[in-house]
């Protein structure tokens, strides 16, 4: 038996308190409407019920929206990854002319509060005729989402040892080859991070998918469906908790899948 790491003594209780609200949300999904409020903070429902899930499935239109959400999120992630990795590489490694200006511009756009820039975006997409499919929504989501990933890739590539690239160049590898075969695989931690956060954002996205599918409501995503629980006068907490619980499963799965990339960086690669 190995000696128990003393850190566990701190981490275990901390994590239990830490995730309490999440646990409450999941347990609320199994509580009756009465118990949600009268039962207060207890984590175990007195009577287990699946009514919330049935109602949530209907109200948020899971059946109709799930596949849209998958397509929308995956496409968005792919576009963001492709564009931001190449741009981040060019800015982080290369001696691109006007690099400083571009980085300055990127940082500038970070500080416009988002949300209400939706009106110009909408007018643009409407003008381009992209407003009847998910592609418009994907472009509108992926477009502004690029800045953060570009900066992340830039920072990451900038920190990589120069020897790696030099070695590859001496071997006569072409520029795209160096990028796709050597640099990108090494940037796995950032790829994982960017994929995770953009997947989450796209999965939960509400405003853009709503606005871009007005003409074809059958193309909506779950983020839109989730908002149906908020009424003018009352919120359906049980239904919301149930829907949130279902729709979080893929995100947690993605997290578990991607988290390996946060610990497998260039650490091993440098030596070989």
């Amino acid at each position: 038996m190995r000696r128990l790491n003393p850190w566990h003594l701190l981490l275990v209780p901390l994590c239990l308190v830490w995730i309490y609200p999440f646990v409450w949300m999941v347990s609320t999904a199994f509580k009756s409407e009465r118990e949600v409020f009268l039962g207060g903070l207890s984590v175990l429902p007195d009577e287990w019920t699946f009514d919330n899930f049935v109602r949530a499935w209907d109200t948020a239109h899971f059946g109709a929206y799930l596949s849209n959400t998958v397509v929308f999120s995956v496409t968005t992630v792919i576009i963001v990854l492709l564009v931001s990795a190449t741009a981040g590489y060019a800015l982080g490694r290369g001696s691109l002319p006007g690099k400083k200006v571009i980085v300055g511009l990127l940082i500038t756009t970070m500080f416009i509060p988002h949300g209400y820039t939706i009106i110009p975006i909408f007018k643009l997409v409407d003008g381009l005729g992209l407003n009847t499919g998910l592609l418009g929504a994907v472009l509108a989501t992926a477009g502004p989402a690029h800045v953060v990933p570009i900066l992340l890739f830039m920072g990451y590539f900038a920190g990589m040892p120069q020897e790696l690239e030099d070695a590859a160049r001496i071997d006569g590898a072409s520029y795209p080859r160096i990028f796709f075969r050597i640099m990108l695989p090494l940037a796995k931690p950032v790829v994982g991070t960017v994929a995770l956060f953009n997947f989450m954002a796209a999965w939960n996205a509400f405003f853009i998918p709503l606005v871009f599918t007005l003409g074809r409501p059958e193309l909506r995503t779950l983020g839109v469906g989730m908002y149906s629980f908020f009424g003018q006068e009352a919120t359906d907490w049980g239904g919301l908790a149930a829907a949130a619980t279902i729709s979080l499963l893929p995100i947690i799965a993605i997290f578990l899948f991607l988290q390996r990339t946060f610990v497998e960086g260039i650490a091993g690669a440098v030596k070989s």
Partner: peptide
Amino acid sequence: TAVGGLTSACNLIGGSE
């Protein structure tokens, strides 16, 4: 999901009503 996804994928481009 994949089958649904295919239909959705076609909907990426959009089409007539």
